[in-house]
Nucleic acid binder design. Structure first.
Length: 441
RNA sequence: GUGGAUGUAGCUCAGGGGUAGAGCGCCUGACUGUGGAUCAGGAGGCCGUGGGUUCAAUCCCCAUCAUCCACCCCA
C-alpha cells in the first residue's frame, strides 16, 4: 500500500474551484472596468519583494505578519508582499520618468501571516487603484467614487463609506493631551466605538488610565453626528485651534465638495471621527467601507504622501483605495447577488457523440461551432445519450447538440435547450447561426 | 500570540467501551436515441494523528495537528 500524502493546502489559503472562479472573474471584471473607466492602468509587480522594501512601512504590529520567503542557500532576504501600495511606491521611486499623475491599478494576491477566521485569509486578493503625484483632493474624491461605483454595480445597497483624516486624528491626540507613548492605545480604543459603544470606549480609556477630564472631552468629540457639514463645523469648533486638525478638516471639506460634484449621494458616506485605520503610512484622508459588521471592512484606503519619500529623495504625494474581493465575494455568495448571466460553467454547448461511427461528424460540427465563437465541449465517450444529457445537466451547460444517424440523414442536427427541455432539428449549415441567436438573447 | 468549539462516508451530521449508521451526492440497471421524478442494486470510512487506561478504544484520559469562532489587527 502506497503511503499517501494527505492532500491539503496551507492554513488560511484555499483552492478556488471553477464554479467559484467564474463568480470571482465576474467581480474582478466589474472592478477592472470601473478602474479603466477612470483612466487607471494595469501594473504588475513580483509576488516577493526584498524584505528591506517592506520593513518599516506598516507599523510594528502589521510588520510581524509579513511572510518571510527565503530559501536554503538564498543570498537575498526576501518576503511575500503584504499589500500592493508599498510595491507601488517602490515602482514609482524606481522609474521616476513615469508621467505624473501616475494612475495605476493592480489586482493580485497579498499574504499576511495572521490567524485565519471569518472573512480573513492568509492569502487574499487586493484590487487597488492609486494615484501618484497629485496632492489634489480630487484624487481622493475619485477613490471614493471608485468605491461607490464598484459597489453599486455589484448590487450592494446600504453600504456606508466612512471618512476621516489622519490630521484630524492627530489633532484629537493633541487635544486629549495624552502622552505620545499612549496615543496608539487611545486610537485603538476610539476605533472600537462602532463595536463596543460609548460606554465600552469609556471603560477602556479608564483602564488605560486616561484622565477623566480628557475622557469627557473625547466623548463630546466622538458623539458628533449628523450631515457632513455640521460634523465638520462642530469639529472645527472643538479642534480648530490645532493647526494640524484645521488642515485635516479643510481637506475633508474639499474632498466632500468634489464628491458632491461627482454625484456621490450623501446617503452613501459619513464622516466618522472614530475611524482610525491601523497602517502607519497614512497621512491625510482615509476611508473604509462597512457592509456587514461581522465580516469587517470590504474596502480600505487613504492618502500616504510620505511613503514614496522613503525610497527616493524625490517624494510624491499619493493616495489610493483597495477592495477586498474575498470579503466582497463572501457577502455576494451569502445573498446570491450574481446576475443570471453568471452561470456554473463557461461552456455554452455540449456536442454529444452518438456512437463511434459518428464521432468524426460530431467533431467537425464542434469545430464549426467554435469557429462561430460558441464555447463547445465534445463528450469524449460515444453512446448512451442519457449519460451525456445528465452530464450537460449537472454541469449547467445550457444547450446540447445531438447528431444521430436520423438527423445526419436529413442533413440536420438537433439543438436541445436544457432548461426548457425543448428540442428542434436545424439544418447543419444553420446550426451556428441558430445557436448564436439563442445565446445572445 | 490568547481564549472557546469542533474533527465519524464526497457533503451535512447522528451514534456509542466489544473494530460503524442516516440523509443527500456518486456509479449501474429498469429506460437498447435523450437529463431534474420513482424503484432496485452497488461502490465508498485503519471514526484527524500519536500515546495512555483497559481483556478490548472510534467512544474515556493526555498530547499534537487541522478547521471554525472570538480577541488583537486587518481586506
Amino acid at each position: 500500500m502506497a503511503q499517501y500524502i494527505k492532500p491539503r493546502v496551507p492554513r488560511g489559503m484555499r483552492d478556488i474551484l471553477p464554479e467559484q472562479m467564474i463568480r470571482r472573474q465576474y467581480v474582478i471584471e466589474v472592478i477592472r472596468n470601473v478602474f479603466e473607466e477612470f483612466g487607471f492602468e494595469p501594473l504588475q509587480t513580483p509576488a516577493m519583494e526584498l524584505s528591506e522594501v517592506l520593513t518599516g512601512k506598516y507599523g510594528p504590529d502589521a510588520e510581524k505578519m509579513i511572510y518571510q520567503a527565503g530559501h536554503t542557500g538564498g543570498k537575498e532576504d526576501i518576503s511575500l508582499r503584504y499589500d500592493l501600495s508599498v510595491p507601488l511606491c517602490r515602482v514609482v521611486a524606481m522609474y521616476p520618468q513615469l508621467p505624473k499623475p501616475f494612475k495605476r491599478y493592480q489586482i493580485d494576491p497579498v499574504w499576511r501571516a495572521e490567524r485565519p477566521q471569518k472573512g480573513r485569509y492568509r492569502q487574499f486578493f487586493q484590487c487597488d487603484a492609486d494615484t501618484v503625484g497629485s496632492e489634489s483632493m480630487l484624487a481622493d474624491a475619485e477613490n471614493v467614487n471608485l468605491i461607490y461605483q464598484v459597489l453599486s454595480r455589484l448590487g450592494f445597497k446600504g453600504f456606508q463609506i466612512h471618512l476621516n483624516d489622519r490630521k484630524v486624528i492627530t489633532g484629537i491626540g493633541l487635544f486629549s493631551g495624552v502622552p505620545s507613548k499612549q496615543l496608539g492605545g487611545l486610537y485603538r480604543s476610539i476605533d472600537k466605538l462602532d463595536k463596543i459603544g460609548l460606554d465600552g470606549v469609556t471603560a477602556e480609556l479608564r483602564e488605560n488610565e486616561i484622565p477623566e477630564d480628557v475622557i469627557a472631552k473625547l466623548l463630546t468629540l466622538l458623539q458628533i453626528e449628523g450631515d457632513s457639514d455640521s460634523v465638520l463645523s462642530e469639529l472645527e469648533d472643538q479642534l480648530g485651534e490645532y493647526e494640524i486638525a484645521h488642515e485635516g478638516i479643510s481637506e475633508l471639506r474639499d474632498l466632500i465638495s468634489f464628491m458632491d460634484t461627482l454625484g456621490i449621494p450623501e446617503t452613501s458616506y459619513q464622516i466618522n471621527v472614530s475611524m482610525v485605520r491601523g497602517l502607519e503610512y497614512y497621512t491625510g484622508p482615509i476611508y473604509e467601507t462597512v457592509q456587514d459588521a461581522s465580516i469587517g471592512s470590504i474596502t480600505g484606503g487613504g492618502r500616504y504622501d510620505e511613503l514614496i519619500g522613503s525610497f527616493s529623495k524625490q517624494g510624491f504625494p499619493a493616495t489610493g483605495t483597495s477592495f477586498g474581493i474575498e470579503r466582497i465575494i463572501d457577502l455576494m455568495n451569502a445573498s446570491d447577488m450574481y446576475p443570471s448571466t453568471v452561470g456554473k460553467t463557461v461552456t455554452q454547448v455540449l456536442m454529444t457523440v452518438f456512437d463511434d461511427t459518428l464521432m468524426s461528424e460530431s467533431l467537425k460540427l464542434a469545430t464549426r461551432l467554435r469557429q462561430g465563437g460558441i464555447r463547445t465541449e465534445v463528450y469524449h465517450r460515444p453512446g448512451k445519450l442519457s449519460t451525456q444529457m445528465k452530464y450537460a445537466d449537472t454541469k449547467g451547460i445550457p444547450y446540447a447538440v445531438i447528431l444521430g444517424s436520423d438527423e445526419l440523414a436529413a442533413g440536420n442536427a438537433a439543438i436541445r435547450d436544457m432548461s426548457s427541455r425543448e428540442q428542434e432539428d436545424v439544418p447543419l449549415d444553420r446550426i451556428v447561426d441558430k445557436i448564436q441567436q439563442l445565446i445572445s438573447c
